[in-house]
Design a binder for these strands. Structure first.
Lengths: 311, 311
DNA sequence: AGCAATCCACAACAATCAGTTGTTCACTAA
DNA sequence: TTAGTGAACAACTGATTGTTGTGGATTGCT
């Protein structure tokens, strides 16, 4: 199926006749006739009834028309997604940090007129390089990792503190607790698969380990949160940290326990990074939106690594 | 932008290299190289970084990939929408009878796996002809009009009785009523623009007029329910009939009044029509869905023309 | 370092396709 | 009957696409 043919089909459907459509498209009537004939042959149905007064849509044509329009719309969006100059705002989020995509969902809901492309890059180095090159406009990260200050042309602001909760199976020693303190977790095994060594997460949990003496195991690849929760539910000796789920649903018989952590509550600090000179107009809107959300947070009783940039 | 090029792009992105993608598409590696080069030229950006180990997506490529996949998905749905043999279930509804599209929304919600094409044909003759020819699978209509029995190969079942309510502006004589009877409407002017003479609606309201002596004016073209409600709100002498709105929203300051009609309540009978021999598997599902909804209705205290097929 | 293997790009050629001009056919209105 | 309108067919031409053949760049093995 040829997009030009589809475009021609829509033009004829709107014009009501081949000749006018040809004029609209700046081609000859014969070319339109050929394109429609080819399209009809590929689809295997007749799209127009040709009469002496022009062309009218058949029932099949009427059914096809909205799909054709949708196809052209999607094609235009696809082209615009990489159009240098005025493409959608490209925001990078960390995979499996649902709080970040939750923020972007909220932004999209508040500003549905702004075209967005939410992406997931590999690591903060890639993200920073992409921001500096202009390939992406903003990135959600937990910055800055210790000893790796951001380049001068990258700006950042802390936008969300995500309180971490403890997830355990029903047979875990702490399964019955209404809440636990970080100190109570000393000696317990916390499983956080999929954390890359050297990443900002690794630094975060390294600090947590150093300060409170938990055992954090980052071994094994990350098979997704479903697999993680399956294992947690079945393994009495294991627990994991997780943010407040925004819309997470798991089978009720899993028996998973979600236990708040207090005194202090470890929070995972999300920051937004962008290039000092990025001219994308939607970037300012995003920053304003996030700034409005972040206003008035309370840092009392929470814990973050001391290298985290302050508010 | 060429759909074959987009398909090639996705194949390369999935294969990770041009050669394997070429094998998957049963063309030569050089053809793949050319297609990608052309696509990159049209889009104006580089989509892959070519290395000695294959091709990797650039950031632009990563942003484009989901759009490309969506494009192929939509193209496939567009083709399937007219595919003879196993196309989506085609159901015809009457324009501006929101209760019918409401029923179809409910069906779609209950059976999201069933592909649907909801269409709006002109009149019942067209619809019956389309059903007999197999061009559409089902049609919502108010049948049968007096003196025009359905052909023998068309089956029908009454699926929804839609109670009509009176809509008036704030200055209308009945604006303050909690409810009105049909007899109270004698002499009042009811405006129902856009009703075609000879249509099933016309027959419905003709009977209503004959029995209760209202004045129904069907003059003027239908500019849509927004324009209709605007006029009703501003004209003290006019009112109109309307079904229970499913999700209708109008500006609060319109001052429109929605008044139930009783003793009896006129109901607009919606029926589903289909061809006796239609083999579409989803048609049976739709009939079962609607039959479950229609079960156990109560005809007491309602009015329909006596030519309406009974339950 | 040398060599083979892998992978992509360029060049030349063949086949096909799309668009144009010229013309014919079908139907309607005067 | 005769214009007039609108679409389809035919022949031609230029452009596009895919093929084969080949070259350049990088990696890994010996």
């Amino acid at each position: 199926m040829d997009l030009e043919a589809v475009r021609t089909f829509v033009a004829v459907a709107e014009a009501g006749q081949f000749q006018k459509a040809a004029a609209d498209l700046s081609i000859t009537q014969q070319a339109v006739s050929k394109r429609i004939a080819t399209l009809e042959r590929t689809l295997g149905v007749r799209l127009f009834t040709r009469g002496p007064r022009g062309a009218e849509l058949t029932i099949d044509g009427q059914a096809f028309l909205p799909h054709a329009r949708e196809l052209l719309r999607v094609a235009e969006r696809a082209g615009a997604s990489v159009c240098p100059g005025h493409r959608p705002l490209r925001v990078d989020v960390i995979a499996s940090r649902s709080a970040q995509s939750g923020l972007m969902r909220g932004f999209h809901h508040a500003h549905p007129e702004i075209d967005l492309d939410v992406m997931m890059l590999l690591d903060i180095e890639t993200a920073v390089a992409a921001i500096r090159s202009g390939a992406i406009d903003a990135s959600f990260r937990a910055v800055a990792a210790p000893g790796r200050p951001l380049p001068e042309d990258i700006e950042s602001v802390r936008v969300l503190d995500e309180p971490l909760q403890l997830m355990t199976g029903p047979a875990h020693a702490l399964a019955g607790a209404r809440s636990v303190t970080l100190a109570q977790l000393t000696g317990h095994r916390i499983w956080m698969p999929g954390i890359l060594p050297g990443s900002e997460w690794a630094a975060y949990y390294d600090d947590l380990v150093a300060e409170f003496g938990l055992t954090i195991e980052a071994t094994g690849p990350n098979f997704g949160s479903d697999a993680l929760l399956d294992t947690i539910a079945d393994t009495p000796a294991l627990a994991t940290f997780m943010g407040e789920p925004t819309r997470l649903v798991w089978p009720a018989d899993h028996g998973l326990r979600r236990i708040p952590v207090t005194d202090p509550t470890p929070v995972y600090p999300h920051s937004l990074l962008w290039h000092r000179d990025n001219p994308h107009p939607a970037l300012a809107t995003l920053r304003a939106h996030l700034a409005a959300l972040a206003a008035g947070h309370d840092a009392a009783g929470t814990w973050t690594p001391d290298w985290v940039i302050p508010h």
